[in-house]
């Protein structure tokens, strides 16, 4: 499974960002191998529409799930319509992905 994680850093040991829309990078992890790709978030410096811009990156990267500290209404609308599940997560990117695999994360409606 491909999982997108909002992060303030650029590797698996970087922290999960509190906000999807304004995170520096979106790290997309292939959970079978723990290989990852780093996408910079165009929403980080956007005047408005940050959540939508970040959601577009997540979708274009082919992720099926997304983890962040929190989500705004626009990105959640995008994910729920596009069939991408959003989860609240914390800790490092690696820890958050592991928590998802261990079924410990809560999906956001």
């Amino acid at each position: 499974m491909r999982v997108a994680v909002a992060s303030s850093g650029d590797d698996l040991d970087a922290p999960v960002d509190m906000r999807l829309g304004r995170c520096a990078n979106i790290i997309v992890v292939e959970t079978d191998t723990m290989n990852f790709e780093v996408y910079s978030n165009p929403g980080a410096l956007a005047g408005t529409g940050a959540g939508v811009a970040a959601a577009q990156v997540v979708a274009d990267a082919g992720a099926e799930a997304v983890i962040a500290g929190n989500f705004g209404i626009n990105s959640l609308r995008a994910f729920s319509n596009g069939g991408i599940t959003a989860y609240i997560g914390s800790g490092t990117v690696r820890q958050a992905v592991q928590a998802l695999l261990d079924d410990e994360l809560e999906a956001v409606e």
């Binding site: 529409g49 939508v52 577009q56 979708a59 995008a78 994910f79 319509n81 069939g83 991408i84």
Partner: peptide, 16 residues
């Protein structure tokens, strides 16, 4: 970012 294509869904955000 007033329009997004999220997989099969196309969403518009009129207030943006």
């Amino acid at each position: 970012s007033a329009i997004a294509v999220i997989r099969d869904a196309v969403l518009t955000f009129p207030d943006l």
